[in-house]
């Protein structure tokens, strides 16, 4: 159906078995991908009065709540880092994950009218969402940088600081994108069959936050449980960002490998599940 397919014969027949991605077709629709990213970003700015300011306010408010509740009241260790900075950092990967999770899992239900009228590779929509969510992530990262510099200027530094591994940050973000796309697509596929998942998804996201070392460092997790915690694919990216930007945190190649394997597995199965549901979902919603 795309421009690039004009010389190609298209065969329409029932899909046998599972189907991954048609890369060629995806490439033919690259213009649509860039336009959707740009639509997401510009329409989000236009919707609210504060616009992009929300992307700064939200993590700061959450950080303040965490600082008061977990830092002051529960006195959970922050590995010697000022709690404020610790939580701002912890929320970087998690914030991006949560945004992607929400936008991806709503893909099919939010676009039913579009999908019911015209064909294009459906995966373009969740992927454009994940790419456009990079904007709020970068704003959040900049906010973190401002606070980081401020704490440093106050002379509160010393025990923490940026490390050389910070250049690996894009790889960590890529991993977070893969996990959130995978999980989000699973939820999207399941909600078309079972309505429960719309409710369940929000609940799971809440619990998941506490299963991830966002408000506590991985060092606080007993060593015998760390393998289990690393099965949560979000654990290592969160801990890695802490290592990269603050120089605190723990990890091992073993945990890292588990985390990456789980992430890739989530992504691949998520895409397969989504593709399987997608071909006929307009009939059921």
């Amino acid at each position: 159906m795309a421009a690039a397919q004009s010389d190609r014969e298209l065969i329409i027949q029932p899909t046998q078995g599972w189907r991954f991605l048609d890369w060629r077709e995806f490439w033919a629709y690259r213009d649509l991908l860039s336009l959707l990213i740009w639509r997401d970003i510009s329409s989000r700015y236009k919707q609210t009065i504060l616009g992009p300011v929300w992307f700064i306010v939200q993590p700061i408010m959450t950080t303040i709540v965490f600082t008061v509740v977990f830092g002051r009241m529960a006195k959970i260790s922050t590995d010697g880092v000022p709690p404020m900075l610790f939580y701002l950092n912890g929320l970087l990967a998690w914030g991006y994950f949560a945004q992607n999770f929400t936008s991806t899992s709503a893909t099919l239900t939010n676009n039913i009218s579009l999908f019911g009228k015209v064909y294009f590779p459906r995966l373009i929509v969740p992927i454009s969402g994940i790419l456009s969510n990079l904007v709020p992530f970068l704003i959040q990262l900049a906010t973190f940088a401002v606070f980081y510099l401020w704490f440093k200027a106050q002379g509160l530094g010393g025990s923490f600081g940026l490390t050389m591994s910070a250049w690996l940050l894009p790889l960590t973000i890529l991993q977070v994108a893969a996990i959130s796309l995978g999980v989000g697509l699973w939820v999207a596929a399941l909600t078309t069959r079972f309505r429960d998942f719309t409710i369940l998804a929000g609940f799971v996201l809440q619990l998941w936050l506490y299963a991830t070392p966002v408000i506590y460092p991985l060092t606080r997790v007993p060593a015998k449980w760390r393998l289990l915690v690393a099965l949560n694919p979000m654990t290592m990216p969160t801990e890695n960002l802490r290592q990269m930007l603050l120089g605190v945190g723990s990890g091992s190649w073993k945990l890292e490998t588990i985390s990456i394997v789980v992430s890739v597995f989530t992504l691949i199965t998520g895409v397969l599940a989504f593709q399987r549901i997608e071909k006929n979902f307009v009939d059921v919603l």
Partner: peptide, 30 residues
């Protein structure tokens, strides 16, 4: 127009297809 799959059978289409199943599909108000 590949919005939904057939249960059985086959169709071959040679050439680029555009389907106008409703005008204004995907217009964004903002």
């Amino acid at each position: 127009s590949r919005i939904t799959e057939p249960t059985s059978g086959r169709a071959r289409i040679r050439g680029r297809v555009a389907s106008l199943l409703e005008v204004g599909t995907g217009f964004h108000p903002d």
